[in-house]
Design a protein around this nucleic acid. Structure first.
Length: 882
DNA sequence: TGTCTCACG
DNA sequence: ACGTACGTGAGACAA
């Protein structure tokens, strides 16, 4: 079976150039477009496995389109020099991959692709077009799909005929009619002024082509629209013509000419080396192995220590200096896991110690617990937990590869050790998935395979550590690692191990109550609907509400009707079933996630041990899993009662909860240096009321509840990186009004406005933003061409320093608190963190001391130019600590 | 496995 | 005209 891939070369190069920061290699050449292009190429080759391929480029300045329309592409800005100089390199890239690049005078890449796609499609050859340009949707047919870049270069969306129908309600042929009506500013195709995508789609739903729209101009809705269509009908027809891809370009070659020869890995490697594409180099090697059915080579030298006597020689090793340690566990969750074995590396030699052997050795235990003997690890929190479960207090863990890699790029989700070592240019090691298999095929490994795999990891930890240290120093992230994240890992390990005690009787009770309520609501809904159906299925629910009961469709999702709460709330007045459904959803969520879900997680000790993940969020916050204890209900009373099941693990103790008040807005006041906002906090005003007073220009007693609610929404919006659209949605008001609120806010708080502008500017210049303690987040999309991607990056640039600094502050408070509690020899225990609050269990006798201590440490954790304020409460349950 | 929905800060 | 509020995790459904 043949499979042809046609790539729109200019479009992908552009995409790559704007999506990636302007990388430069050591000889000063810009390489970002080439890099992005190569990423895309490798991904496609790997995933689609084409047999034939061609990359088309635009040739010259003018095409046959300019004959009918001089201004074609007239608004297009000149290609930036940094991109133009990379085009020959892109062609060289294609050459080493032995993929034909083609261009033809007087035609655009689109036309070449169109001609080939039509020819191959008609022969029934499966054809895939890759581009960032929606225009090419018109080429889709039964055998031709379009892969449209969505975000960056490698994230794509595949379009076939049904997908186009779904998204636009059009056939592929109608795409040119769409362009004819709405135009295309990037190609300077005029269309009909005042007609955008929305209007155009509405018209095409009624009249399938531009010609039909013109013919039925009298039937169009609205006098103004009719006029516009009449006045610009010639222009619309010309636009359609310009948007039509020409599929009869004379080509002097056929499909067989495009067959891909076997890959020449050596040439590719040589080219990537020249370009200094380290990550891609390791991927080529990997793909190469995969193709030959081999795994990444594992040539590690390992000695398996199979008996206690064999451990004697280890004593010298333990005394020798920094050793890398990797502990393999029976499962991912350290609270349930058993230790399988230990791999140790001094950088040259590796030792593997099965746990049955290691646990009997005092030398091993002593080494693990000795603060003076350095151990380099991957995931120190997990290491500490599994060892603590065996009665060993791990000490001397001086470097964590996982935390280091996270700080170097917190957006990176691939943080497995094998990913990290490849990323930082070390010799690759096999990925866990390649060794253990995945999903149902996952299997345990034993014997030498196991020993070698773990040994390779320990060795890799040893080798990658100096590289990571150097990178951290370069970006000034060492302090953050050594003084914040690593100490915090130990604090979190202790919190997780401690766990939260659960009142199981109360949990049962609430469960029975909710189940009854759920059953009753279910019956009432069936009665009102006249049939039984699955209320939890958005599909079936949509059919009942919108088809059977005929409620108006206010919003659609890409798979059908939207039945989300905000839609249902608007429909509630129209039918009494809607409120029942909303209530059913609410109770159903409580029952399945919080009753059944929590029950499953209670251990033999009657406690829940969540895991705080320290390397997930892009902002520096923690996250919580298995179960997530950071989203226990509080907003609605019915759900809030779930908090009654979280109780102290010792009789007579109390739950203490301390939360920062408005920490994000205080952080904003600090970093923006806005005097007005700082004043409000220095005078300890209710910030939403104060905002309402300032923005609406009224006195305190004139602030109505509505005004305060709106001011609150504006404050939220500010923290999220404001947009008129977003605020309009949050407040359910017209966008125009929302924009007026924002304008007035910025007039009142000009420092905030200056901050928002300057942080976006900085992000554009540097490609990243930072928090107060120097944590950084890269924003490659900040210079993207697409409005959507770029705006998203801009909002992120505004939000991340705020959210991230707040995260820094509470993390620092946790480390300092743990230390203070230790020094004072308090029995109280820190149990949970929920972004801006900390939960403890506290003996009666320590209650007052703890309240004072917690408030003091949290408020002084990281002094800002405005005071931080902490509220503290206690009670017999988490519910009561409010 | 992806999508939708909804719980939290 | 463009088209989203920032950051998460989990359960249910439908392929």
């Amino acid at each position: 079976m043949s499979k042809l891939i046609l790539v729109d070369g200019n479009s992908i190069a552009y995409r790559a150039f704007y999506a990636l920061p302007l990388l430069t290699n050591s000889s000063g050449i810009h390489t970002n477009a080439v890099y992005g292009f190569a990423m895309m190429l490798m991904k496609i080759l790997e995933e689609e496995k084409p047999t034939h391929m061609l990359v088309a480029f635009d040739a010259g300045k003018t095409t046959f389109r300019h004959e009918s329309y001089q201004e074609y592409k007239g608004t297009r800005q000149k290609t930036p020099g940094e991109l133009a100089e990379q085009i020959p390199l892109v062609k060289e890239l294609l050459d080493v991959f032995q993929i034909p690049a083609y261009e033809k005078e007087n035609y655009e890449a689109d036309d070449i692709i169109g001609t080939l796609a039509k020819a191959s499609g008609s022969q029934g050859v499966e054809t895939l077009i890759v581009s960032g340009d929606k225009d090419l949707l018109q080429l889709v047919d039964e055998h031709v799909r379009l892969l449209l870049t969505r975000k960056g270069v490698t994230e794509t969306e595949s379009y076939d005929i049904p997908a186009i129908k779904e998204k636009y309600g059009l056939t592929p042929a109608q795409i040119i009619d769409l362009k004819g009506l709405m135009g295309d500013s990037s190609d300077n195709i005029p269309g009909i002024p005042g007609v955008g995508e929305k209007t155009a789609l509405k018209l095409l739903a009624k009249f399938p082509t531009v010609e039909e729209v013109i013919a039925h101009v009298d039937e169009l809705p609205g006098k103004k629209l009719q006029e516009k269509v009449r006045e610009h009908q010639e222009q619309a027809l010309l636009s359609k013509k310009l948007a039509t891809i020409y599929t009869e370009v004379p080509l002097d070659f056929g499909l067989d000419h495009l067959q891909l020869p076997e890959r020449d890995t050596e040439r590719i490697v040589e080219f990537f080396k020249k370009m200094e594409f380290k990550t891609l180099l390791s991927r080529v090697h990997k793909q190469d192995h995969a193709e030959k059915g081999e795994a990444v080579k594992n040539e590690v030298d390992v000695r398996e220590v199979a008996s206690l006597s064999g451990l004697e020689e280890m004593v010298d090793v333990f005394n020798a200096g920094s050793l890398a340690l990797f502990i393999e566990t029976s499962e991912d969750n350290p609270h349930h896991a058993d230790i399988v074995g230990l791999a140790i590396s001094d950088g040259q030699t590796q030792w593997y110690l099965p746990w049955e052997v290691a646990e009997q050795s005092d030398a091993v235990r002593g080494w693990l617990a000795d603060e003076e003997r350095d151990k380099l690890v991957y995931d120190m929190k997990k290491t500490q937990i599994v060892l603590a479960n065996k009665g060993i207090i791990a000490a001397g863990l001086t470097f964590d590869v996982l935390l280091a890699a996270y700080l170097l790029d917190p957006s990176e989700s691939q943080l497995e050790l094998s990913d990290i070592v490849s990323r930082y240019g070390n010799e690759p090691i096999p990925a866990d998935e390649d060794v253990y298999g995945k999903g149902a095929k996952r299997k345990a490994i034993t014997g030498e395979t196991l020993a070698r795999h773990l040994a390779a990891k320990a060795k890799a930890i040893h080798h990658v550590t100096p590289v990571l240290k150097q990178e951290l120093a370069k970006l000034d992230l060492d302090q953050l690692l050594f003084e914040l994240e690593m100490p915090l890992a130990s604090v979190l390990a202790e919190m997780e191990r401690q766990g939260v005690f659960i009142d199981q009787a109360r949990l049962e009770e609430l469960g029975v109550e909710l189940k009854q309520s759920l059953d009753r609501l279910e019956q009432e809904i069936y009665e009102l609907a006249g049939v039984t159906f699955n209320i939890n299925s958005p599909k079936q629910l949509g059919e009942i509400l919108f088809d059977k009961l005929g409620l108006p469709v206010l919003k659609k999702t890409k798979t059908g009707y939207s039945t989300s709460a905000d839609v249902l709330e608007k429909l509630a007045p129209q039918h009494e079933i809607v409120d029942k459904i909303l209530h059913y959803r609410q109770v159903g969520k409580l029952y399945s996630t919080y009753i059944e879900g929590l029950k499953k997680e209670i251990g033999a000790d009657g406690k829940i041990h969540t895991r705080f993940n320290q390397t997930v969020t892009a902002t520096g916050r923690l996250s919580s899993t298995e179960p997530n204890l950071q989203n226990i209900p509080i907003r609605m009373e019915e759900g809030r009662r779930i908090r009654q099941v979280f109780i102290p693990s010792e009789p007579g103790w109390h739950i203490l909860a301390a939360d920062y008040s408005q920490i994000e807005l205080r952080v904003l006041a600090h970093i923006s240096e806005d005097e007005q906002l700082q004043k409000a906090f220095k005078e300890d005003k209710d910030i939403h009321t104060q905002t309402a007073m300032d923005v609406f220009g009224v006195a305190e007693d004139e602030v109505t509840p509505l005004m305060r609610r709106q001011a609150k929404a504006v404050n939220f919006g500010i923290v999220y990186g404001i947009s008129g659209f977003g605020l309009a949605r949050g407040l359910d008001i017209p966008q125009k009004e929302a924009r007026e609120f924002i304008d007035r806010y910025f007039e009142t708080f000009p420092g905030v406005k200056r901050y928002m502008d300057s942080i976006v500017e900085r992000a554009r210049k540097d490609g990243f933003v930072t928090t107060l303690s120097g944590r950084r987040r890269y924003l490659p999309a900040i210079n993207a061409k697409s409005f959507g991607e770029r705006s998203f990056a801009e909002r992120t640039a505004m939000n991340t320093p705020i959210q991230g600094t707040a995260a820094d502050i509470i993390k620092l408070a946790m480390v300092k608190l743990a230390q203070a509690m230790n020094e004072r020899k308090l029995a109280s225990r820190m149990l949970l963190q929920v972004h801006d609050e900390l939960i403890f269990e506290v003996p009666e006798a320590e209650l007052e001391e703890m309240k004072e201590l917690v408030v003091a440490v949290m408020e002084d954790a990281l002094p800002l130019s405005v005071p931080l304020s902490v509220d503290v409460n206690s009670g017999k349950t988490w519910y009561e600590a409010k």
